[in-house]
Design a protein around this nucleic acid. Structure first.
Lengths: 224, 224, 224, 224
DNA sequence: CATGAATGAGATTTCATTCAT
DNA sequence: CATGAATGAAATCTCATTCAT
């Protein structure tokens, strides 16, 4: 019994050990150029051992990404729904979490690079990502906007139909970091403040800003 | 004479023919998995012919991306500087161009995917991209914001320090399209309107929206 | 334990098996025209296996020649120094060994062909050859001559400054065999006698000869 | 007429131009690694032009070597037969010519390297070499020895059966230069003197030397 | 005659995958 | 379970040779 349990533990350990090593290798070299021998070396095991846990390179790769994707935003929705402050404060907190968890997190950035680079070759990944991350994420952002509208902090706008625009600047920050980050680093804290200012001003209801006669005129022009 | 000219034409044609075929292949398979034999086949030529025009696979790849990157935004700055309408109108037009030229343009999207996927392996590409696209693009966006502030259409804000946040949602649209676009397409026209609304509201000066006593106080605090 | 030892043995075997096959192939075709696939076939293994033991073609080639060169003449010097007969007898024995080991040894001849053909492209080989073969060989020949002079069997002469002239005819025999040996074979035993006669007469001191009645008798006996 | 003749001249010129360029290339790289494009470049012509003069690479190579081999020693026989000095003087002159024309002549050395390296793959070359060089060369050396014996300058010996032994040291000098010449150059003038001393002493008749009583004793030891 | 662009066979090298131990 | 030697398909790149101009 004990030995079996130990074995299972060891196996689980091995399994994750391999996944971790594989993530390092894949994110350093990309899917095609990653060498399973190097994965094995990073994991401190022999090449053949990988095949005891994963049928082949593709399934290892998909397991790596699935492991990273899963549960990414499952708490976000709950967080939004149970938050008890103002909508504005909620936006601040939600975006701050995004920066901490994703934009400033190099592992998350590398995962996103792999996803962008390879998802069209591994359609299952896009499915998982859509279901686990994009769907919940958009839903949470939509809830957030609706709460703000309900509390009259935010105005009604077309933004509610595409809540993801609010996260756009964070995505740009990730892509920026991936492409030119080494040559032209972003000051992410100050960047996030600019992002927040744009989003909060962009969402805020007219009533929050004081009515003025020209306002009507302007917003009319704006619509046209 | 005619034969010379024909030859030169043919040569130029071949060169570009290969670049076009290579772009197709690289953006379909990524750098590592692209096969030069398939590039040749797409171009309707023999394998060896590629090597008459490009020393090796890497240089072909870099030539492909350089060709796509170069001059991408060189006119944007001029467009912004010579535009004679309101700043708001300018923002609308600039973003509309981004959507037409980049977000809705599948070639541009694929180029961006290659850049994200491979730029860390080909640092020269990041250099070119920074110099030719990112730099001019950010500069143009900064000019745009400053014009709006000068004309009092936009308020002063931290956004001016990071003009790229304005384009963030467009980048998200590109990444979205690349990863889950096939399963969950974005209605880009309506998405763009949401983007515009966020940006215009986010930039617009307080004075444009009606003064109110708390507003001034708050925006003062916010700026500090 | 047994399996380890078997494995190590097998590995050593493989290594040498490849070297042997490679020598066959290289000496049949020369460096450039030798095909690693054919080396593998001669060794009865797969193409890729070679790369488990040798990084690339060049290093395999150099390993082949280094293996043949090493220790070629290391015992010669000792043999010369510890020989207790006359200098003339020593010359006879040394040259006889050369013929047995080199001139009549087709493996040695082929090695020499490779060395002549390729050494200018692989300078390290020339270094090894100089250090392992040429240096010790010349030193041994020099010792040999000096012994003869010391014992007054040989006269002092310019030959001592270039002891390698004594071996020249053997080198000619090798080259002859390599180029026209198939069409015009040399009778190496009788050729060696001619060589010996030239060398012994060439070295012998004037005082050692002297026309005397027995001379005719002796030289007649000598011929037989 | 004139144009035809000019053309033919041009063609002959081209022909030799190509041969010269090809020799440079072949002797620098060996047969297999020589590139016809580089031959063309050395000759200042286009790659295709070579094929107007030579059917293919192999025939070009053979033509190069045939051109170098032909007539190499055809005058030697005549020189020996018509020489009117002593046999010893003749030996000196013949060997001096060998050093000047062959050993010290880098073109000749390179040709010999090609011959050694490639002749087994191009049997026709060995034929030509045997007929044009080796045959006449050996014949001339034999004549030379016979003249010396006839004039009692040289004694009868087994050397006459293998006259090529006399040239051996020169062959060694060539091989030495080809393999280790760059690292350990030979002083060819002094080397040749050693060679001459060996050969002249080796050939010289007993009567030419000096009587000594110990001869009997020594030659007895010699046999043991 | 001369050119040089184009071809495609062929060589080296890599690496995912298998399997005997 | 774990190993790592062995395999061989596949990819890059070269270059002798052809041929339209």
């Amino acid at each position: 019994m004990l030995s079996t349990s130990r074995t299972r533990e060891a196996k689980l350990h091995r399994h994750d050990q391999i996944l971790a090593a594989a993530f390092e290798e894949f994110s350093a070299k990309g899917y095609a150029e990653a060498r399973l021998e190097d994965v094995a070396q990073r994991a401190g095991i022999a090449k053949g051992t990988i095949y005891l846990y994963f049928k082949n390179k593709e399934l290892l790769f998909r397991a790596v990404l699935r492991g990273l994707i899963r549960h990414a935003f499952e708490e976000l929705e709950i967080f939004v729904q149970t938050f008890s402050g103002t909508a504005e404060e909620l936006v601040r907190q939600v975006l701050a979490r995004q920066y901490t968890n994703v934009v400033k997190n190099s592992k998350a950035r590398l995962m996103l690079r792999l996803l962008i680079a390879e998802s069209h070759k591994f359609p299952q990944l896009a499915d998982v990502y859509l279901r686990e991350v994009v769907g919940p994420g958009v839903a949470a952002m939509r809830t957030l906007i609706e709460r703000g509208i309900a509390s009259s902090e935010f105005r009604e706008s077309k933004i509610a139909a595409f809540p993801q625009v609010l996260v756009g600047p964070a995505v740009l920050a990730v892509v920026w970091t991936l492409i030119v980050g080494e040559r032209q680093p972003l000051d992410l804290d100050r960047y996030m403040e600019a992002h927040l200012e744009l989003v909060l001003h962009g969402l805020r209801g007219e009533s929050q800003r004081a009515p003025c006669s020209t306002e009507i005129f302007l917003s009319a022009r704006e619509k046209q």
